[in-house]
Design a protein around this nucleic acid. Sequence first.
DNA 1: ATTAAAAGTGCAGTATATGACACTATCAAT
DNA 2: ATTGATAGTGTCATATACTGCACTTTTAAT
Lengths: 68, 68
Amino acid sequence: MTLSIIEQIKERRKVLAISQESLAEISGVGLRTLKQFESGKGNPTLKTLQNLCDTLGLEIKLEVKSIE
Amino acid sequence: MTLSIIEQIKERRKVLAISQESLAEISGVGLRTLKQFESGKGNPTLKTLQNLCDTLGLEIKLEVKSIE
DNA sequence: ATTAAAAGTGCAGTATATGACACTATCAAT
DNA sequence: ATTGATAGTGTCATATACTGCACTTTTAAT
């Protein structure tokens, strides 16, 4: 059961015990925007994703899919 | 020298020897949109990224950044 | 049961991503 | 030098991402 990108971000935020409000402030992403993602709505841009990931100490990587 | 996400996608397309036009058609991403990305402009949405990655056999992963 | 903090939602304005069309530029071959 | 395929650009219309504000709901604590 692999988590979606958004779910992974949400999990990471919780591991770091940061509120949505704090993450929004630190990352520069609007609180309304963050709330939307975490409640399963929305379709973030790469820039927004990167802002969040940078703040959370996450790295976005592309891997060649293995032939299961 | 780490490549940007977009650059990695471009590289992958070339490895597979697919034209922008083919990739656009297969992935469902507009040709104009794809051209924009590969020429360094634009800020794709996650959905668009995933369409491209799916088609190219790439997987988007989030990793916890190692300390330095 | 109260309370406070955190998370989620409705609405509305602004910015911008997406996409189509037509065009130009570049490249690779003969 | 021509030709054909591929890549890049200008403009514009439409869709939607981003955001703030105000509000409600949920969660977690005493």
